[in-house]
């Protein structure tokens, strides 16, 4: 009698999905901006507010955009790693100082080290919204054509660098 087995079949399908569900992180939301052109911006430098950086300045090179703030505790976790990465010179890291005070941000960089080629200021979070930032820190990899290739949400770890970010950068730099 097949119809009496139907509940069991439905249950098995359900269990398979629940099992897969256990391995997923419900709080990670993939960005729709992957493989789309990075939103354009025009922002002041953190160190020298008179200078302006435009997103198109970086066309022709692979670069990393790291969203950070001095009030962000998790940023402290990833920061030594970024400083190390900057020293190797594999990829230029641009810091987007997100909704922060200038003085504390500068102080923070003096204290923990400054891995950024340039730090730019997004004081009202407008550019953050354009990039779909919802949790700091976030890190974007942008290719030579100005296309976003990868977004990492949360602190960068050794594992995520080795498994995903560095191989991708090498591939993009070709």
């Amino acid at each position: 009698m097949i119809r009496f087995l139907l509940p069991l079949a439905i249950f098995i399908v359900l269990v398979v999905f629940l099992g897969i569900g256990l391995t997923l992180n419900p709080r990670q939301v993939p960005s729709p901006l992957i493989d789309k052109p990075a939103p354009v911006f025009q922002l002041n430098h953190l160190h020298d507010p008179d200078k302006i950086m435009m997103s198109k300045d970086n066309l022709g090179k692979v670069w990393m955009l790291n969203v950070w703030a001095s009030w962000c505790v998790a940023c402290r976790d990833e920061h030594p790693l970024l400083v190390q990465l900057a020293k190797t010179g594999i990829v230029p890291i641009y810091g987007l100082n997100y909704k922060d005070e200038r003085d504390t941000a500068l102080q923070w960089l003096r204290q923990y080290g400054d891995p950024y080629t340039v730090s730019i200021v997004d004081s009202d979070g407008k550019v953050g919204i354009d990039y779909g930032v919802y949790g700091v820190p976030e890190t974007y990899i942008i290719d030579k054509q100005g296309i976003i290739r990868h977004k990492h949400i949360g602190p960068v770890t050794v594992k995520s660098l080795e498994d995903k970010i560095l191989p991708l950068i090498r591939e993009l730099q070709g």
């Binding site: 939301v29 993939p30 960005s31 729709p32 901006l33 919204i129 354009d130 990039y131 779909g132 919802y134």
Partner: peptide, 8 residues
């Protein structure tokens, strides 16, 4: 909003 954050 959907263009930035997805259907989520």
């Amino acid at each position: 909003l959907v263009a930035r954050y997805g259907d989520f």
